[in-house]
C-alpha cells in the first residue's frame, strides 16, 4: 500500500492501556496557533472527551462549546482534521491518524476564542431567509390537517430535522467565496416552510431566498449534504427553491 494512503487511514484498533493521543488544538483568535497536548487514549473516546480532558487537566481557560453530549443540541461542532463534525458523536478511533488529531473552530464563522465561533451571522441568515413560520390560525381554531403522505409534507419532513449545528455552513465553499450567501441551513429551513401549507408568508419568503445571495448562488457542490450529521440534503432543498422561485417568476409573483 502506498505510504500516503496508509497515513490517511484512521486507526480502528482499540486503545491500548496507557496509550496517549497527540492533539493539536487551536488556541487564540485569528492570530492564534495550534498547540499540541498529550491526552490519555481511552476506549470509546470521543473528540469532545479529548477537548474536555485538555480543559480539565491542562488548560482551564480553554474555550469550547457543548451541551447535550449526545448529538441533540448541535453546539459542539468543530473542525476535526480539516472536516466539520459534531465532536460528541465522533470517536477518536474514526479520525485519529498516526495517533494524532487536529481540532480547530468551525470555518466560515468569525472566531471568538479557541474553539468557539460567533454563530450570530449564521442564525441571522435564518431570519433573513424568512425561516420563521407565519400562520393564519389562532389557538381558538381547529388544528390544520396536513396529509402525512402529501408531496409537500414529505419534502418538509426530509429537511425538518436540522438542529442548526453549522456543519453544512462551515463546509460550504460558496459561503467561503461570498460571505453574504445565506448558506445551506437557512435555505433548507426556508424550503421546509415553503412546503408548509399552513404558512402565509410564501411570497415574501421566495423573494428572500431567490437572487444573488440566495439559492441561485448554490453550485450544487454537495459538501453540505455529504457532511450533514443528520443526513439531510440541503442541496436538494436548494434545488427545490430554484424550481419554485422560477415558477413564481414566470407567473409574475416574485
Amino acid at each position: 500500500m502506498p505510504q500516503a494512503s496508509a497515513q490517511a487511514q484512521p486507526e480502528r484498533t482499540p486503545a491500548r492501556h496507557g496509550a496517549t493521543l497527540r492533539v493539536s488544538l487551536w488556541r487564540g483568535r485569528d492570530d492564534g496557533a495550534f498547540v499540541e497536548y498529550e491526552v490519555p487514549r481511552l476506549e470509546s473516546q470521543t473528540v469532545l472527551d479529548v477537548v474536555t480532558w485538555v480543559q480539565r487537566h491542562r488548560e482551564p481557560g480553554l474555550a469550547y462549546r457543548f451541551a447535550c453530549r449526545v448529538g441533540m443540541c448541535g453546539s459542539c461542532a468543530m473542525t476535526v482534521n480539516g472536516v466539520a463534525r459534531w465532536t460528541c458523536r465522533t470517536h477518536v478511533a474514526e479520525v485519529a491518524q498516526d495517533g494524532h488529531v487536529q481540532i480547530a473552530p468551525l470555518a466560515n464563522l468569525p472566531r471568538v476564542k479557541d474553539l468557539v465561533t460567533d454563530m450570530r451571522e449564521f442564525f441571522d441568515k435564518w431570519a433573513r431567509a424568512q425561516g420563521r413560520f407565519f400562520g393564519a390560525r389562532t389557538r381558538h381554531d381547529e388544528f390544520a390537517r396536513v396529509r402525512p403522505d402529501s408531496e409537500a409534507r414529505q419534502a418538509a419532513d426530509a429537511g425538518i430535522e436540522c438542529i442548526g449545528c453549522g456543519v453544512c455552513y462551515a463546509s460550504c465553499d460558496v459561503v467561503t467565496w461570498r460571505p453574504d450567501y445565506l448558506g445551506p441551513a437557512a435555505l433548507n429551513r426556508a424550503w421546509t416552510l415553503v412546503n408548509d401549507e399552513r404558512d402565509t408568508a410564501q411570497a415574501a419568503r421566495l423573494r428572500a431566498v431567490a437572487g444573488d445571495a440566495g439559492c441561485h448562488s448554490c453550485h450544487s457542490l454537495g459538501s453540505c449534504t455529504e457532511r450533514c450529521p443528520k443526513h439531510i440534503a440541503p442541496t436538494g432543498s436548494i434545488a427545490g427553491l430554484k424550481r419554485v422561485t422560477a415558477r413564481a417568476a414566470i407567473r409574475g409573483k416574485l
Binding site: A210, A246, A249
Partner: peptide, 11 residues
C-alpha cells in the same frame, strides 16, 4: 430587481 434577474437567468 436582482431577485427576478437571478431567477430568470437560472430559468
Amino acid at each position: 430587481a436582482d431577485v427576478v434577474r437571478e431567477t430568470r437567468r437560472w430559468y
